[in-house]
Computed example of a mutant assay.
Amino acid sequence: MEALVEQFFSTLQARTPQGLRSPVDGVLRVDLYTGEHTEHWVVTMEAGKPIAAPGYAEADTVWRSDAELFEKLVTGESQPVAALLRNDATLSGDVTLFLAFRRFFPPSPHARDPRTMGAVGPETPA
């Protein structure tokens, strides 16, 4: 599990152009707990470019969830807004920063582009 989380944070900067549509500034802390242990990650975004590092720091926004849920987020198995609505995670602080950060999570592998849902191919005569 830790390897997935580390890989997610270490590749944030490489995925910035596709992740962010506008520059965002701020500090987001991700608190991941497993039982009594909490792991902290700090993501500093300056001009929309993220720099992530393990550790604790004061932050504009704090995401808190169990480590298992976060693993599902980084694999696209779950979505961050849905996790918040289910109360599986908590968020405090600047929501705008979180809304920008959530773009770094992959889409669900079962997601389909809504623009293609209503598309019908040419009918073939019977």
Results as ranks from 00 to 15, higher is better:
residue 46 E to G: 09
residue 70 F to V: 05
residue 41 W to L: 03
residue 61 T to M: 07
residue 40 H to G: 01
residue 62 V to Q: 08
residue 59 A to C: 03
residue 54 P to Y: 06
residue 16 T to I: 09
residue 16 T to G: 10
residue 26 G to K: 10
residue 64 R to G: 02
residue 51 I to G: 12
residue 16 T to M: 11
residue 62 V to W: 04
residue 69 L to Y: 00
residue 35 G to S: 03
residue 71 E to N: 13
residue 21 R to K: 15
residue 42 V to F: 05
residue 25 D to P: 09
residue 36 E to Q: 14
residue 57 A to N: 10
residue 63 W to A: 01
residue 35 G to P: 04
residue 15 R to A: 05
residue 43 V to Y: 04
residue 28 L to E: 06
residue 18 Q to E: 14
residue 68 E to A: 15
residue 25 D to I: 09
residue 17 P to F: 07
residue 22 S to V: 14
residue 38 T to K: 02
residue 24 V to R: 15
residue 55 G to F: 03
residue 22 S to F: 13
residue 20 L to Q: 09
residue 16 T to F: 02
residue 29 R to I: 00
residue 64 R to Y: 03
residue 43 V to T: 06
residue 65 S to N: 02
residue 36 E to W: 06
residue 39 E to W: 02
residue 50 P to F: 04
residue 33 Y to G: 14
residue 48 G to W: 06
residue 22 S to G: 12
residue 71 E to R: 10
residue 59 A to H: 04
residue 54 P to S: 13
residue 68 E to G: 11
residue 53 A to Q: 12
residue 27 V to I: 13
residue 53 A to I: 08
residue 51 I to K: 15
residue 70 F to K: 06
residue 29 R to Q: 12
residue 67 A to W: 09
residue 33 Y to L: 07
residue 34 T to D: 12
residue 46 E to R: 15
residue 22 S to A: 15
residue 45 M to P: 03
residue 16 T to K: 14
residue 65 S to R: 06
residue 46 E to P: 10
residue 48 G to I: 11
residue 63 W to Y: 01
residue 25 D to W: 12
residue 59 A to F: 04
residue 26 G to Q: 09
residue 30 V to W: 00
residue 35 G to D: 08
residue 55 G to V: 05
residue 47 A to L: 11
residue 33 Y to S: 15
residue 48 G to M: 06
residue 70 F to I: 06
residue 19 G to K: 10
residue 21 R to E: 15
residue 23 P to G: 05
residue 49 K to D: 04
residue 44 T to R: 11
residue 32 L to A: 00
residue 58 E to G: 12
residue 28 L to R: 00
residue 26 G to S: 11
residue 46 E to L: 14
residue 42 V to Q: 01
residue 35 G to Y: 08
residue 64 R to P: 01
residue 24 V to Q: 15
residue 66 D to S: 05
residue 33 Y to I: 07
residue 24 V to E: 11
residue 32 L to Y: 04
residue 36 E to T: 13
residue 63 W to F: 00
residue 52 A to H: 08
residue 61 T to D: 01
residue 27 V to C: 02
residue 47 A to F: 07
residue 27 V to R: 13
residue 41 W to N: 01
residue 38 T to V: 09
residue 44 T to W: 01
residue 67 A to R: 15
residue 51 I to C: 14
residue 53 A to S: 11
residue 51 I to Q: 14
residue 24 V to D: 03
residue 66 D to H: 10
residue 64 R to W: 04
residue 56 Y to K: 13
residue 69 L to R: 07
residue 41 W to S: 02
residue 20 L to F: 11
residue 50 P to G: 03
residue 62 V to L: 08
residue 49 K to E: 11
residue 20 L to G: 09
residue 52 A to P: 07
residue 70 F to Q: 02
residue 36 E to Y: 12
residue 62 V to H: 03
residue 66 D to P: 04
residue 42 V to A: 02
residue 55 G to T: 01
residue 49 K to G: 02
residue 70 F to N: 02
residue 61 T to I: 05
residue 27 V to D: 01
residue 42 V to M: 01
